[in-house]
């Protein structure tokens, strides 16, 4: 923890930084999802009540409050459901501009969030047109997986 106090007639402040670390248990379902990314595969879980395939996978269906059952491997391509291009800097996020999208992969019933790369974002109109809802994208995977959800991203299909 660092601290710095200022005094005087002006408002005084006490700045603190707390360096807290956490070690989150992934659970079996997320562990398998991340392991699949390292192999270039996206896996979902089927909700038996609705038949929906949930991606990213959960061990339960939060809509029906029932356990999910079997694993389903979905395609490495799909359609954009929503997107944004970020132009304002946010701490711990990439330098803008960058694009994010939710994509429903073929065989899945819910959308997966990820960065969209491989676009020239300096031409805003063209970038937005290529990111439009319904546009197809493919999943790309890191050559050196980190074991996290940062191991995948999307790219426009056909590039």
């Amino acid at each position: 923890m660092t601290a710095q106090a200022e005094s005087g007639t002006d408002p005084a402040f006490y700045e603190q930084t707390w360096d807290l670390s956490y070690r989150h248990a992934l659970g079996e379902t997320t562990s398998r999802f991340l392991a699949g990314l390292a192999k270039g595969e996206i896996w979902g879980r089927r909700d038996p009540a609705s038949g929906r395939v949930l991606v990213p996978p959960r061990s339960y269906s939060d809509r029906d409050h029932t356990p999910t059952t079997d694993w389903v491997k979905v395609a490495n391509e799909g359609v954009i459901e929503m997107f944004t291009v970020v132009y304002e800097p946010f701490r711990n996020l990439p330098d803008p501009p960058y694009a994010l999208a939710y994509v429903t992969l073929d065989g899945a019933d819910t959308a997966l969030v990820g960065y969209v790369k491989g676009l020239d974002l300096s031409d805003r109109e063209e970038a937005v047109r290529r990111l439009a809802i319904g546009e197809r994208v493919v999943v790309a995977f890191a050559d050196e997986p980190t074991g996290t959800a940062a191991d995948y991203w999307f790219e426009p299909a056909g590039d």
């Binding site: 992934l26 997320t30 997107f83 946010f90 711990n92 990439p94």
Partner: peptide
Amino acid sequence: FVLRAVGMNDTIAASLQAS
């Protein structure tokens, strides 16, 4: 597990919705 690895805040979430 997934969302923090990508990055999310109120502004980005609102923009995704507005799209």
